[in-house]
Simulated scan of single mutants.
Amino acid sequence: MLSYRKALWALVFVANLAAASSAQAQYDTAFPGAVQPFTDVNLENYDFQWFAPPITEQYGQDTIDPNTGIFFEYHRLFMNVNRGNEAPGPWDGDATYGNRIDFGFMTEEDHGWLFSGWRLDGPSYDLVNRGDFNSFEANRTWRLPQFYKGFWMEPMIGMRYAQFNDKTAPLTFVQNNMLLGQLGTRVFSHRGQWTLKGEARAFAGNNFVFRGNIDDYSNAVVGGEFALGAAYNLTREISLDVFWNTMYFGEGIGRDPNANDSESMFISGVAFGVTLNR
């Protein structure tokens, strides 16, 4: 197990070094900040009028552009997690709760960063489906020009670390540690006091599976995430959100502590929360 942990942290370290050196090598002063790993956020130009009246005009018309600057989102998650292949009713799932936080910034030059973290405290169905899930991702983002009737697109590229601990077996839990690269996009459109939005990500990487004193192993993992929802803008920079979110991991998840198995995992449900300047 120690060797896999060392390999996992080595991969994280090397990936960060490679990203930083690549960005430095490709830097072009004709496009400042376009490929730099981090861009200065000029807070002096942001008025932070959280309670200004909401914008009701469609983005892209009457010189109304989408928000720039820093943003923060919090959502309460109500999700369903499928059971392992050896559990009773393997096609069923069990409900759990969790939290999601997103934060980052978008500059006036239409590039920025998005960081997102998940935490699910369950499911908690003893001897059938028990575990917890954690995820953190960092994405470089860009905003493309308006492309169709007020719709805007923000492509992203980044990395994700996801961990799923299966605690269904009473004596041994299975820990899945996934290091993933990902591509995705966010699409949104403003209509009156409503913002319609959708997100999609595809990811792939390696899963390091630890099983206590039992031999560890690793699997390749491919999957994706999809979200579709709407936000009601209370003020110019504060909105209430609701969306449906689904995350799928293809073959590669370890859930049986007594076998080097490779299963899929499906997490789906709804989220309610608040967004500041998005």
Rank of each mutant, 00 (worst) to 15 (best):
P32K: 05
K167E: 15
V274H: 03
F147C: 09
W50P: 01
P53C: 00
D121M: 15
F71W: 11
Q61S: 15
Y217E: 02
G158E: 03
A204P: 00
R119E: 08
P155T: 07
D166K: 02
V35P: 04
R191G: 04
T39Q: 14
F243G: 04
D241W: 04
L43K: 09
R186W: 08
G224E: 04
E86C: 03
L179E: 06
Q26G: 11
Y46V: 13
A87D: 06
R119I: 05
F115G: 12
Y248R: 15
G223N: 11
A202F: 15
N129P: 07
W50H: 05
G212V: 08
G181W: 12
G33E: 00
E237V: 09
R236D: 11
N129R: 03
Y27T: 12
S124P: 07
I267R: 06
E108T: 15
F13C: 08
T141G: 12
G273T: 04
E263T: 08
R76I: 02
F133Y: 15
D102H: 07
V128D: 09
A87E: 06
M159S: 14
N80W: 01
R130N: 12
N85L: 14
S3T: 13
T96K: 10
Y74N: 12
V174T: 11
F188D: 12
V187Q: 07
N129K: 05
A20Q: 07
T172P: 11
F266Q: 02
T29H: 13
N82P: 00
V270G: 13
G269A: 05
G198Y: 00
K197V: 09
G122F: 11
F203N: 07
M79T: 01
G254T: 06
A202W: 15
F72Y: 03
W113H: 10
Y97F: 09
Y97A: 11
I101V: 14
V274D: 11
L17F: 14
S22C: 07
H75G: 06
V41T: 14
L127P: 05
G69E: 10
